[in-house]
Design a protein around this nucleic acid. Structure first.
Lengths: 230, 230
DNA sequence: ATTACTAAGTTACGAGTAA
DNA sequence: TTTACTCGTAACTTAGTAA
């Protein structure tokens, strides 16, 4: 498997294809046309296309002469991710919006939010004692890049700790609202992005927000720019 | 000199530095911290920093332990350019707005707009014979990236030409309005972006728009997506 | 701790060329 | 014309260190 991220030169190629319109349309492009664009050889352009194809970032229909190229959803997601990074660099939003579906997942949430080591830190750093259990919102996987973005901002760090039985990982929290009800988003400090967001609050969110499983909610996460680039 | 564009892996590094806040602040970063971020070795991170430094895209103040890194204006420009590309991919606006200050600069403008080689092409391609002289609008340098964006779109190309005395460079024109008065934006095809926009029109714009030097005007530039990505 | 050199290993590039 | 193979070489990466 690919360990992390796309190779920079493949990203460049993918971006170039997007600039040529390969996201919305399939475009007729020869490897030598592409090689002129990026100042690489025809052979390298051809190899890049093969690589992108094998990673399912582009699709190709080979004609007798040229080929029809289009960027796949997966390829487009990578570019969107990149776009989000640049937005972050130059635009610095203050809040991030999600819409997602309420899902139940009380079993695990209750276990974690009852851990003394977490509770004490939540109370100290967030200013409230969390109601046991988490309120879970399932977001569109396409919006997972927003999570990446959020984690780059200044959050409230809950340190990892250990009990005689096991160890618990660190968590980063952000002030948020779900349908205007204040709460806090919790994200694991380490590990990968799930498409389920978990929220905690001083009260039982399920009744406060008053929604059933499967109902859509609007989430606003409040973020602040990091002062120090550590 | 560097032939064209930044190496993709250096761009990635520069972007990463920007995400860590190195555009507005100088940030304390060790090469191994950076290497973790992008999943490269400490040695490679160190080499990247040396390369970026030698290209004047970043500045470094070496401490006894870590170093303070900041992205230079030149480095920031490269990232802005990249941002504009992504904007182009995903946003595709039809018109670009500027607000700017009227400035006088008739001397040069009159010289250029009187050149037979330009006049003939303006008449043929824009459909009007320009009134001698340009109407100049000074925009916020922050908005210079909009110019970059505009130049990526389909404009009216005025070819370079030569006279016995000297040669005149190519120009790209876009239909535009200043305070709703129709005119055309002219940008040099080659060379860098100035923060002064020059406009031509069939009539004397100064009286048509009826503003004095220093007064603010609203500019709308009309752009169309390039059909062909040549 | 750091940064960054050298040397060796690895990957990528493009000329030549086949299909 | 295309795309894309082989293969020699150029470029990049990293391990081992020095400062």
């Amino acid at each position: 498997m690919q360990d992390q991220g796309i190779k920079p030169y493949l990203l460049q190629m993918l971006k170039e294809l997007a600039l040529l319109g390969a996201i919305s349309n399939r475009v007729e492009l020869s490897s030598s046309e592409l090689s002129d664009q990026i100042h690489i050889s025809q052979q390298t352009a051809s190899r890049y296309l093969l690589e992108l194809d094998s990673m399912n970032l582009i699709g190709r229909e080979m004609g007798i002469k040229k080929q029809l190229i289009h960027i796949t959803e997966k390829g487009s997601d990578i570019l969107k991710d990149e776009y989000v990074h640049y937005k972050h660099i130059f635009d610095l939003p203050q809040r991030i919006y999600f819409t997602g579906k309420t899902v139940s997942g009380m079993k695990e949430g209750t276990y974690y939010t009852s851990q003394e080591g977490y509770v004490r830190q939540f109370e100290e750093k967030l200013g409230f004692k969390p109601y046991p259990g988490t309120f879970n919102v399932s977001i569109d996987p396409i919006e997972k890049n927003k999570i990446r973005l959020i984690k780059r901002y200044e959050g409230i760090i809950i340190d990892p700790f250990e009990t005689p039985h096991r160890s618990f990982g660190g968590v980063i929290c952000f002030h948020a609202t779900i349908n205007e009800v204040p709460c806090a988003l919790t994200l694991p400090l380490r590990g990968h992005y799930s498409s389920i967001l978990e929220f905690i609050a001083p009260d039982y969110l399920r009744t406060k927000i008053n929604v059933e499983d499967g109902e859509m909610v609007t989430v606003i996460v409040f973020i602040a720019k990091k002062e120090d680039g550590k």
